[in-house]
Design a protein around this nucleic acid. Structure first.
Lengths: 220, 220
DNA sequence: TAGATTGTTAATCGATTAACAATC
DNA sequence: TAGATTGTTAATCGATTAACAATC
């Protein structure tokens, strides 16, 4: 018996591709700012030191198509990429853990441009509860689940230590959250229906410091 | 004529491996906390839903070796990983851009545990210059290059908008910086001797929102 | 039309996974 | 010793790159 895939299966996008798409957007914004209306994949590839074929393959995933000899309409391409990445429709989110990192994300304007509006923070510290950070209320943990449900919040942002992370994730998921942006240094156990994406702060810091160590060693 | 590699060539570590190593550390800390003294690769792999062989290959890069039948000494393994990632010797850094994100990193305690001590911030806003954030001075941009050189700073952290990023990177590099942790949404052009690692805030946010959109679509 | 660029198919490369011998 | 686990070599898989036909 051969396995028959459901006809509506969406082609999954390779993770490396997904990581590059936001970089294409950065580049496109810069190019558009210089007054260009169309752009070729070699143009984008040059700017980012990538292979033009790779850029073309990546763009194909978003469903947009260019015109031979001409290239891609920059405006259309930006819209297609932003739509694909989900940056075109703003989604409300709750943040758990109002420490330094959490406070930063509450105040980081650019997140809203990427379709993420953090509407409130939660913290277990009574001294923080009731205060306002960057215009957003800090609420007590015991309200996390009920408010998530009542406000139909779909995204949770975790900026707390590893210890409290799983517990917070559980409450959020019980409340109906479908996606978690996790900055806590721990792996979360969640149902298949929930997406977890790691903030990767420490991964990138590891790459940085390892790279520095190598660079210094090579110099001797 | 055959190419002869220099005998001291260091084997380069695949990027996926480098991304996983900090996750192993998280897991190891949790396992150690539970009182274990040794750990097997299948144990680590189970916790992180990875393949044991992959964990073994990754660990081999750090130079540590385990004992057949027994496994790895947790303590030794943690030290080996931290050393490999450069988290064991603290390096001083300058941060440029004292906005919300920059302020957060200035106050984020855990960075120091990963060997990064941000000692001062720089900003072009005269209103911020002279103030103190999380106990660290905010200094004017015009001192960036000279202070970097005088204090032998090797790491720069960029938390400013795309526009100012290249300029700041240039000043840091002129001052002697060898590694840049870049949170600005732009590609930096730097000499080969300088390591740039992207903070990837927007890449991960893109993966999150794209993942959410897919999850919601699959549900209908 | 000729040339440039897209989009696709094939070849290559590198990372993951499987198989297994070495070893405590 | 027997069994479990490491560490390495081989097979597989997937992503990148190269080649090239289609097209404006």
């Amino acid at each position: 018996m051969t396995e028959s895939k459901p006809s509506h299966t969406i082609k999954t996008v390779p993770e490396p591709t997904l990581r590059r798409l936001p970089r294409y957007l950065n580049t496109l914004h810069a190019i558009r700012f210089r007054g260009r209306l169309v752009v070729s994949t070699s143009h984008i590839a040059d700017e980012l030191k990538l292979d033009p074929t790779q850029v073309r393959k990546d763009l194909a995933y978003t469903g947009i198509s260019g015109r031979p000899k001409v290239g891609y309409d920059i405006e259309e391409l930006i819209v297609a990429l932003e739509t694909f990445l989900g940056w075109r429709n703003t989604e409300e989110a709750f943040l758990v853990g109002a420490g330094a990192l959490g406070t930063a994300l509450l105040g980081h304007q650019r997140l809203e441009e990427c379709g993420l509006r953090i509407v409130a923070a939660f913290d277990r510290d009574p001294a923080k509860v009731g205060t306002t950070l960057h215009g957003k209320e800090v609420l007590p943990m015991k309200k996390l689940k009920s408010l998530t449900a009542r406000m139909h919040i779909l995204i949770g942002v975790l900026t707390l230590p590893a210890e409290g992370a799983q517990e917070a994730a559980d409450r959020l998921i019980e409340g109906g959250v479908k996606a978690i942006w996790n900055f806590a240094p721990t792996r979360l156990i969640v149902p298949d229906s929930v997406v977890v994406v790691d903030g990767e702060l420490y991964s990138t810091l590891g790459m940085l410091k390892h790279g520095l160590a190598r660079a210094l060693k090579n110099e001797e």
